[in-house]
């Protein structure tokens, strides 16, 4: 058992993800507090180790099944890495890969897991996580008991560490486990984003709607405002899952990350997954009837007026 902190690197098309650097930044702070080092597990693409300057050690596993993310392949390879390196703590993204692997690793590696983590600290040797639950309305401060633990971290909640550790990380290789040759799943194809629709990530101004819109018919009201402003209509996940707007208009963790000059949010409460996608907007103006809505924690201006009262007035004023 070491006192090191390990991060699972995520990569797409040969690029280590921005979120990975956020994980490494947090891992470095924790490793310093524990007196350990920062290790990064890099699966399938040892050639990307050069992008992981801020890590102390990069642990590579090479196998054809690991070239793209396949849940079972990653799980088996990572369990092998965990068995050999025995870190004190494993940090994963609270996005697809963390949601996919976290709880299974918790069972197989026999370590407690905290999800939706927005802050982590070492308190007298104990690992203490703050998790945002119930759509960000409640924070839970939890201790991960025992000698190892797993945390899945919300994107955007931690600063990215782009610094390089002097001579660059030490690169070590772990032999691929035999289980990679007998997987119960295989990758058939990689599908890129749908093209053709407006690119909301390129807009200067976004008019965005959430659950508070209540019905598809009500979208017309907000569409009218978007038209008057010449801005695209975007949405949080519930609106897209209901089929009221296409996926290409979704802002958030499973949609697109946007940073327009102004983001107008109507009826969006501000679940962590949504905030991750828009908190870097230059200005955020939020309208939500719940004064406790988390969206007001990132907005610059807010109002608790009913959107159905406010939006028609906005349309009138914009049209002059």
């Amino acid at each position: 058992m070491s006192v090191n902190v390990m991060v699972l690197a995520e990569h797409t098309d040969g690029q280590v993800s921005d979120g990975t650097y956020e994980l490494i930044g947090q891992a470095r702070a924790l490793a310093a507090a524990l007196g350990g080092v920062t290790e990064v597990a890099l699966l399938g693409r040892a050639d990307l180790a050069g992008q992981l300057g801020p890590a102390d050690v990069v642990v590579c596993v090479e196998h054809p099944a690991l070239e793209e993310y396949v849940p079972e392949a990653y799980e088996r390879a990572l369990l092998e890495v965990l068995a050999q390196r025995s870190p004190r703590l494993l940090l994963l993204s609270n996005a697809t890969i963390g949601l996919d692997l976290g709880a299974a690793l918790s069972v197989h590696w026999d370590a407690p897991l905290a999800a939706y983590v927005s802050a982590l600290e070492i308190d007298g040797g104990a690992v203490v996580a703050t998790a945002q639950i119930l759509g960000g309305k409640v924070l839970a401060e939890v201790e991960l008991p025992g000698r190892r633990g797993i945390a899945t971290l919300l994107g955007g909640a931690f600063g990215a560490d782009l610094g390089a550790a002097g001579a660059g990380p030490e690169v070590v290789h772990v032999a691929p486990p035999a289980g990679l040759g007998a997987l119960r799943m295989s990758l058939r194809s990689v599908v890129g984003p749908d093209g053709g629709d407006i690119d909301i990530s390129a807009a200067d101004l976004l008019v965005s709607v959430g659950r508070g819109i209540e019905s598809q018919e009500n979208l017309e009201t907000v569409q009218e405002l978007a038209d008057a402003l010449g801005a695209p209509l975007s949405a949080s996940r519930p609106v897209v899952d209901a089929g009221w707007l296409p996926k290409s208009r979704q802002v958030g963790q499973s949609g697109l990350k946007v940073k327009p000059r102004v983001y107008l949010a109507f009826g969006i409460s501000g679940a962590p997954e949504h905030l991750e996608g828009m908190r870097r907007s230059e200005m955020i103006i939020a309208c939500n009837t719940d004064p406790g809505a988390p969206i007001f924690g990132v907005a610059h201006y807010g109002t608790t007026l009913d959107l159905f009262d406010l939006v028609p007035e906005l349309v009138d004023k914009v049209r002059g």
Binding site: P112, L113, A114, V128, Q132, G136, K137, V138, L139, A140, E141, V142, E143, L144, P145, A286, P291, G292, P294, F296, G297, V298, A299, H300, Y301, G302, T303, T304, L305, D309, L310, P312, E313, L314, D316, K317
Partner: peptide, 27 residues
């Protein structure tokens, strides 16, 4: 499992400047 030390609400970051008045005024 995890040991829950406490739960609390997010601290009002007080970040958003709240606009008051009628719908027309806020618009």
């Amino acid at each position: 499992g995890l040991v829950v030390r406490r739960v609390h609400r997010p601290e009002a970051s007080g970040k958003a400047e709240m606009m008051t008045g009628s719908a027309g005024e806020v618009a």
